[in-house]
């Protein structure tokens, strides 16, 4: 996912007042897009959300929502939350460090475009193939596992590690989370003026002083906002987890996947409630991202 910052320019005033027919034609120009969005994005989602508050006969009920609060489902949300949180927080920190190193580290000029292109690839290299790559690396017969055993006499799986576990999944998610962070945070780092550092230096402030009192406070909303986007990104991911762990790890997307497939519960309305829960979680974190981004942009203006 490549998300670059957009800054809204002042909207140009469209050509004066027109007769009603012209106005109608103007709106007709966006009709195809609006109809598409309605049919394939908004209505389906809205139906689910409504369905979450209905029983099988279509009557209003809060029963589905109440049934989310069972141990099994709550623990699924909890594990999902943990994986998303840890992979987002770690991804944000490591991605920030990598981006800083490439952009402000005084490295040769080729480093930055190389990192950016690679990040474009890696952030899109999610899903099933990524799971394969990590199985081949850190799986029970993975290459790194084998190498560690053979040359360092270190039994990775003896330590309780498993690629199918919480740690394994988080480690795998980082493979697309870190590059995603690099891509989102790069514009913010570019926005850091060299003169800020120089002004600080001329006033006697050290490098650390600058980082602590100027650079981090300026970057903080962007960092936090990006981390929220990373969180939503991990929370909704299905393919990687499913290909990696099958149904053995109890996280919400997989639970929902199984639910839709009809493997386990086969209770549509509960499924709708599960979906609603996911939208609420990812929606909240995205709202946080948008709010923080708007705040940063206002500060720059």
């Amino acid at each position: 996912m490549a998300i670059t910052d957009t800054v809204d320019e002042p909207a140009a005033v469209s050509g004066g007042t027109r007769p009603r027919a012209g106005q109608f034609l103007t709106w007709l120009g966006v009709a195809p897009f609006m109809i598409f969005a309605l049919l394939f994005l908004i209505l389906p989602t809205a139906q689910l959300m409504v369905g979450a508050f209905q029983d099988a006969q279509g009557h209003f009920t809060l029963n589905n929502i109440a049934r989310l609060f069972t141990d099994d489902i709550l623990s699924a949300y909890w594990i999902s939350f943990k994986v998303s949180f840890v992979s987002a927080a770690t991804g944000a920190v490591l991605g920030l460090i990598l981006a800083l190193a490439a952009i402000q580290g005084g490295l040769p000029a080729w480093v930055r475009p190389t990192l950016m292109t690679f990040s474009g690839v890696a952030s899109n290299f999610a899903g099933v193939p990524l799971a394969f790559a990590f199985l081949a690396t850190l799986g029970r017969i993975g290459l790194l596992t084998a190498l560690l055993r053979q040359y360092l006499d270190f039994d990775l799986y003896g330590t309780g590690f498993s690629i199918l576990s919480f740690t394994g999944l988080t480690l795998t998610y980082l493979y697309f989370q870190i590059p995603l962070m690099v891509l989102i945070i790069a514009p913010a780092i570019d926005g850091m003026k060299t003169e800020w550092r120089e002004a600080c230096e001329s006033l006697g402030g050290s490098g650390w002083y600058f980082w602590w009192h100027v650079a981090l406070p300026i970057l903080f909303p962007s960092i936090l906002g990006s981390a929220l986007l990373l969180f939503a990104n991990a929370f909704g991911a299905v393919a990687t987890a499913y290909a990696l762990t099958g149904s053995s790890l109890n996280i919400v997307p997989i639970l929902l996947f199984a639910q839709i497939r009809g493997d386990v519960l086969h209770d549509q309305n509960l499924g709708y409630a599960l979906a609603l829960g996911m939208i609420v979680v990812t929606g909240l974190s995205n709202a946080g991202y948008i709010w923080l981004r708007a705040r940063t942009e206002r500060g720059r203006a």
Partner: peptide, 9 residues
Amino acid sequence: IPAIVIVFG
């Protein structure tokens, strides 16, 4: 909205 939710819809 996660892909899985959209397709569920």
